[in-house]
Simulated assay, not measured.
Amino acid sequence: MQTYLSEFTKFSLRPKVLNYVSYAIGLSMIYVPCIAAVIKVNVHIYNDYVFSSWRLLILLNLLPGIGAFIMLYRLPESPKYYLSVNEDDKAMAVLEKCCRLNKGKDVTLASLGVSSVTQPRLRGAPIKRNCVARLWYESLPLLQKPYVRNFFLTSIAVFVQFGASFGLGVWMLRVRHLILQIEETEPICELMKEHGHQNLKLPTCSLNFHNVQDSIYHGVFVLFAFVLTSFLLMCIRRRTIISIYLLTAGLAGLMLNFAKDDTLILIVFLTLIVPPICSLRLTVSLLIDLIPTHLRGKAVALCLIFGRAGVLTSSMFIGYTLRQHCYVTFNGFVLAMIAAMILILLLPSESKMMDNLSK
């Protein structure tokens, strides 16, 4: 979705628009636990099959996806994509439609003095091979100069951001349930060393606001961070914002070595896992600007595969180290945040991106 929307947005507005769209992430992270807490359904259907609140919640969560599919199906293909595959007439037709929607039914491209369009960094002749071979040969430029360096820098940064925001985010709830059941006031790692082996009394399937309040706080924090990002984008460049967010998350990781109070631990946890979510969107927008249109979709897809691998790696790392080597767990994330920040700073500046786009 980010790739598609970026094709309709000019370079200077692209980070802001993509960040506005990301508000939906925070809203959904508030909406889902709130609905889960409100729904109270327990209808016996047949034999042992019961239509419970969980089943209704899953069905309700399908509705936004179905609605998004219908809306996206009705939207036109990107004009930049048509240009990249040498379909100039189709690109003009889409631009004509956009012109009428934005300027009025009586306005046409011709009336604005536009008779043809093009864009820099167009690809050469299409490769005539089967779909699997074509996929490989069309993706191969990402592994070659001039794109390989920027592609791998952003992919590794996304690997870290996904791991911290989603991998650690899942484990946050488990750790919180443990420390809330223990009356001692000690740092997390001391509690894990003493009580990490005990079985957790997890909340029942009948959820209430008390059971999901941490998830709601998480969603509120994410929404607030995206709104803050919108204001920061008015005066600070993307790379600087990403670096600030990653540095903030790293400092929060250090704080987990010492935090004792339950409320403080929750705030520090959220400060560790929320900034990577917001900086993740900005990092992907950097990749979009660094890669030409005909490679952009593949680059973002491959980059997100790196991100999913980061979630898996992060979850396994936490699972193997949290109980016996807890300090390694959180300080490992601190080092990962610093490394990701350095990689982001190694990417080209936005002025250089503008020069590349004009070539």
Rank of each mutant, 00 (worst) to 15 (best):
R238L: 05
P79S: 03
K128S: 14
Q161C: 11
I66T: 10
D88Q: 13
N102C: 06
T271A: 15
I156R: 05
P275S: 14
L247W: 03
T118Q: 06
D89W: 11
L62E: 02
V17D: 01
V38D: 05
T293L: 00
S358R: 11
R121W: 10
L347R: 07
I344W: 03
K16Q: 14
T271F: 10
L109S: 02
S215Y: 12
K97M: 01
L357F: 00
S315D: 05
V268S: 07
D48G: 06
G196T: 03
S139Q: 06
M316I: 13
A68I: 13
L264I: 14
G163E: 04
I241F: 00
L270N: 00
Q119M: 14
V300D: 01
I277E: 13
V43A: 06
N199C: 05
V21S: 13
L280D: 08
L200D: 09
M172Q: 14
I273T: 03
S351P: 02
S230W: 04
L178G: 03
A339M: 07
I156P: 04
S115P: 05
A24M: 13
Q161G: 06
F333K: 01
F231Q: 13
A133T: 06
N47T: 11
L75F: 12
L290V: 05
I182Q: 02
K105E: 15
G196L: 01
A110G: 08
D106E: 15
F162T: 08
S206F: 11
L280G: 15
Y73P: 00
L312T: 08
L343I: 03
P120I: 07
H294T: 08
S206G: 11
T248M: 11
G332F: 01
T154K: 06
C235K: 15
T3L: 05
C205S: 14
L13M: 15
C278D: 03
I30R: 03
S53W: 06
F221C: 15
K260R: 15
L13F: 10
L135H: 11
R149G: 06
G163Y: 04
V158Y: 05
V114W: 04
V148Y: 03
R129S: 09
C303V: 09
F69M: 15
L13R: 15
Y147K: 00
H197M: 07
T283R: 07
K103T: 04
V117G: 01
A299C: 10
T3M: 01
N47C: 07
P141C: 10
G219Y: 02
K105R: 14
M353W: 07
H197A: 05
F151W: 01
A125C: 12
K103P: 00
V268I: 14
Y46K: 14
Q161H: 00
F306C: 14
R100E: 00
F226M: 05
S285K: 05
C98H: 02
A24C: 15
L5N: 08
M316S: 07
F330V: 09
F159K: 01
I291R: 04
R123N: 04
R238M: 07
L343P: 01
F317W: 14
R149T: 13
K359S: 13
Y82S: 07
L101A: 10
K359Q: 08
M255R: 02
L83M: 12
L302P: 09
M1K: 12
V50N: 01
P187C: 12
P33E: 02
S53F: 01
F162V: 02
